[in-house]
Design a protein around this nucleic acid. Structure first.
Lengths: 225, 225
DNA sequence: TTTAAAATATGATATCTGTCATGTTTTATT
DNA sequence: AATAAAACATGACAGATATCATATTTTAAA
């Protein structure tokens, strides 16, 4: 099993602020897991009791709505942490985490992290920064949901995935989502998401081969109103 | 000018975790302000350079959308803090704060708070908890925006205001909002908000006299689908 | 008080989006 | 390869919501 103190992944999240000794201690009690595509890491209401550090792969954080739809609230990639909120508030999770492709994660038990938060102010300040960033993102999502059309939101989602998660060598988006996932990010019916993607294709803004999507005209997407 | 260490308001936010000495120091450099109804406390893009502790009154935090609407993201009442996110991330504000009625606030400069965050782990952990709570609320708002009708969202907004901010002796909601504000919380056109409120009135769910709204049948509102 | 401005109200209509139905394609499994 | 299941696609239609127009009422200001 890898050692936290040597792991490059920690560069990308607040764990980077832990001292070498703290990392060694955490390394001793962490557990590594492989999670297969589609597998649920934890459900709404689960007591998580720790945080996950994503070493590889992508997952979605979603929340079930009363109408049966599973709204995707955030996507998490390599380098990021999952479960900080529940860790801090000591409440059960309000979200479900589901792997979008095969993942490798490390699980660090709650008590260890809490101990470090109490002792290492740089670490807790870093986590504060992360949450402040998440909050800002959440604000933007709220505004988009409230004020923009499905067409605009879907265009922005494609751009976001393109810019945040990158593309394969052939230019297709590296994160593969079903049309239903797109609908659940945008907050619309699956048929509507399919329809709008088809329109984008007709307009030459994107090209698709099955689930693979390539953005052909990113400025065109940005221009959508 | 009041002294922080004797101020009861701090009970309701993370400032309660500061030591007496820290509070005395903060008290020495804080400034009190009165803000009139409708006045803007800070705008999007402003560098805030501190946090506001709300001693009295209510304000809205909003973000301008490209379509010209001013989406309300959160309402802040007596006891709560404003500006933690910008404080922590050291970025300019992504939101505008506007007083909904006359307010009294204390402004604490950034450097003081940062110093305490670095030194007092209990304080920073408390602020982490606050942010985790805000994030959870934001998740709920995203899901509601994405999955619920204007009618449902408006009903839930009325219930939220009723339960979180209370009522006057005559039973009317103590926080007075314009129809436009309601529209900007719910994320709809002002006319739609007006229309739905009129419907609620016709259905006996609420009664209104000018801007004053009284919930007559809270269970009826909760039943709306 | 008078007047102007802003907020509230309501109708008519257009547009957007959801739902249902149905067919096709892709993917997984035997 | 054959089959079933899932995902994707598209049309038709209904319902929700935005927009525009126009009153009416309330509030603020002169």
């Amino acid at each position: 099993m890898g050692k936290c103190e040597q792991c490059i992944i920690k560069q990308f999240n607040s764990l980077k602020s832990l001292t070498k000794d703290e990392l060694i201690r955490i390394s001793a009690c962490k557990t590594s897991k492989t999670i297969k595509k589609g597998e649920v890491i934890f459900e709404e209401g689960d007591s998580i009791n720790g945080i996950y550090c994503v070493k590889n792969g992508v997952c979605k954080l979603s929340k079930l709505s009363e109408n049966g739809k599973d709204q995707i609230v955030k996507m998490v990639v390599k380098g990021q942490l999952i479960g900080q909120r529940s860790l801090v508030s000591n409440e059960n999770s309000n979200l479900q985490a589901t792997a979008l492709n095969d993942m490798e994660v490390c699980f660090i038990p709650r008590t260890e992290i809490i101990a470090d938060l109490q002792k290492n102010p740089k670490f807790s300040f870093d986590m504060l920064k992360d949450m402040a960033h998440d909050l800002r993102e959440a604000d933007d999502i709220i505004v988009n949901m409230a004020q923009k059309s499905v067409r605009q939101r879907l265009a922005e989602t494609l751009i976001y995935i393109h810019e945040s998660f990158g593309v394969n060598p052939d230019g297709t988006l590296s994160v593969i989502l079903s049309r239903e996932d797109y609908a659940n990010i945008v907050g619309t019916a699956t048929e509507s998401a399919i329809r709008v993607l088809s329109q984008f294709k007709k307009e030459g803004l994107i090209s698709t081969v099955g689930k693979f999507i390539r953005i052909e005209d990113i400025n065109g997407l940005k221009r959508i109103e």
